[in-house]
Structures are given as structure tokens and as C-alpha cells.
Write a protein that binds this DNA or RNA. Sequence first.
DNA 1: TTCTATAATATTGTATACAATATAATCATT
DNA 2: AATGATTATATTGTATACAATATTATAGAA
Lengths: 148, 148
Amino acid sequence: MPKEVTLNDQICFQISRAHQLFNKFYQEPLEKFNLTYVQYITLLSLWENDGVTVNYLSQKLGLSNGTLTPLLKRLEKAGWITRNRDKADERRVLIHLTQLGKDNKEPILESVQGCLNRLNYSDDEFADAMDTIVDLQHRLEKTNENDK
Amino acid sequence: MPKEVTLNDQICFQISRAHQLFNKFYQEPLEKFNLTYVQYITLLSLWENDGVTVNYLSQKLGLSNGTLTPLLKRLEKAGWITRNRDKADERRVLIHLTQLGKDNKEPILESVQGCLNRLNYSDDEFADAMDTIVDLQHRLEKTNENDK
DNA sequence: TTCTATAATATTGTATACAATATAATCATT
DNA sequence: AATGATTATATTGTATACAATATTATAGAA
């Protein structure tokens, strides 16, 4: 008799749960900055590389431009970034951090790190967990590739 | 000098990516049934326990009723389930699989399993990956608990 | 029994998320 | 230089996702 397929045995379901829990997890450290989790991740990318195109962010974050355009407009409205057409190539929109966006890097990272510390990962445990997740990604990417 | 915080070092980001990749991954096996990943997960729960309330599904799937109500309406419209007020307690809505929903259990599971096999997990690797992810969930839950 | 508290679901508003399409600018070839 | 192909972003339509609120039904107390 084949084993019954159950919800909790599905690795996709457990990944989804972890994703949901992270969204909740980030609410507390980001609340005082009025940022969502995805907006924070976007700022994180801009703190690494500022003055980039929507397309670059789309690749880096793995989000479609249909997701990013409205998200970036909200970040602009809140004063974190600017959106300007590239004068050298007007198809492009260049995203730049504002002074506010730059000045708040440290406070935001500190607030987040304070929460991350509470996860109580040792360096080894953390590295192992990351390896497991990235390995899963590679398996999924390889399979998704084959579908094309 | 403190180490620079980068996007790819964030475990939240890697979990998000895995979540996105799973959504893509499930498109192929579910396409012919016109189901999304979340709808599939919902059916999976109903194949385990049929005739349950919205609240039960909400707990089981970890989704709010604000997410589930429209999702269940779409599943109803497509003929997979029925939604009926419980005559014994008319605050409740009971969700039942239709004959279509029952009859398609095996074909859907087979289609999905065919794709899952391509991930090439050994039993041990799979168990380890699951442990890692569930352990992460517990760390997140514990931390989220403390916030209340 | 009537009033209140509680419980279960639905609705509203905001924010992702993406496929498909549209728009506009640039590039490439002639 | 004209035009066809390509590139970059925006828009539209559909589907999650949740907090806050509304609605309706039940339960409990006086």
C-alpha cells in the first residue's frame, strides 16, 4: 500500500510556512520605519548597489517588473528612493537612494539584527541551514530549466 | 570593521526564493488541472479531512480567512468543492469535495509526484532538509511568540 | 426572554506577485 | 535615414496574503 500523501510531508508547504513566518518576523523590527519585508529587502539591495535600473533590481531580487514598479513607487512616495529616467537611455529608470534612505541604513540593520540574534543560530547551524536551502533552490532551478 | 550585510546572506531572502521557485515548479504539473499551487495545497488538506469549516482550513494551512474565502470561492466556481452553511450552526461554512475533487486526487498526485521525483532527493537528504526547515520555523515561532 | 458577549465568516483596503500585453526608446541593418 | 527587431518599463488582470472591520449566528447571563 503506497504511503498516504499529507500536507505536512510536503517540503513546499514547509517552505511556504517559513516564508510566512519570516514576513511576520520582520514586522516588529521594521514597524517603526513603516517598511514591509519586501521593501526592506529592496533597500538592502540598494545599499549594496545604488543607482541601478528596475531591470537590475528585478534580476537581483527575483521579482518581476510588474511587482517592482508599484513597490518602487511606494518607496518613492515614502521618501526612501528617487525614480528618474536615464538621460543616456530613456527606456531606463534609475533608482537612487535619498539621503533618508542612506541615513537609515544603520538604524534599520541594527533593528533587524537585534531580532535575528533571537533566532539563536550558531555560525555552523546557520551555515548548514543556508546550504540546505540553497541546495533546494538549485534542485528546483534545474528542474524548472528542463521544462522550457 | 563589521561584516557588510548582503542580500544573499539573508536566510529570509533564500527562503523567499525557494518559495517563489516552488510556485513556478508546481505550475507544470498543475497546469492541466487549472490549479494554482495554493489551491493544490488546499485540496491536499481536503483529501486528508473532508467536510471541514473555513476556520479549520485556515488553521491547517496557516492562511487567514481573508485569503481563504475568495480562494475557496474560486475552487467552488471551478467545480472542485462545495461551500454550504452548516445547518446545525449557521455561522459555519462547511467545505466538501465534489465528485470531481475526489476523482482527480490520484491523477493530480501522480502528476505532482512525477515532478517531485526530478528533485532527486534521497530519503536521508529529504529528511534532513525537512528537519532544517521545520527547525527554522520553530525558531521563528518562538521569536514571534515573544513579541505578543 | 432579552441583552450581551462571543464565535465564524465575509468584506475592505493595502501590498505583494506574475503573465500577458502595451508603450516607448534604442539598436541594427540596409 | 528608414524600418524592423529588440530592450526597458508600465499597465492590466488575476491570484494570493493579511489586518481591521463588519455582519450574522450562537451562547450565556440576568
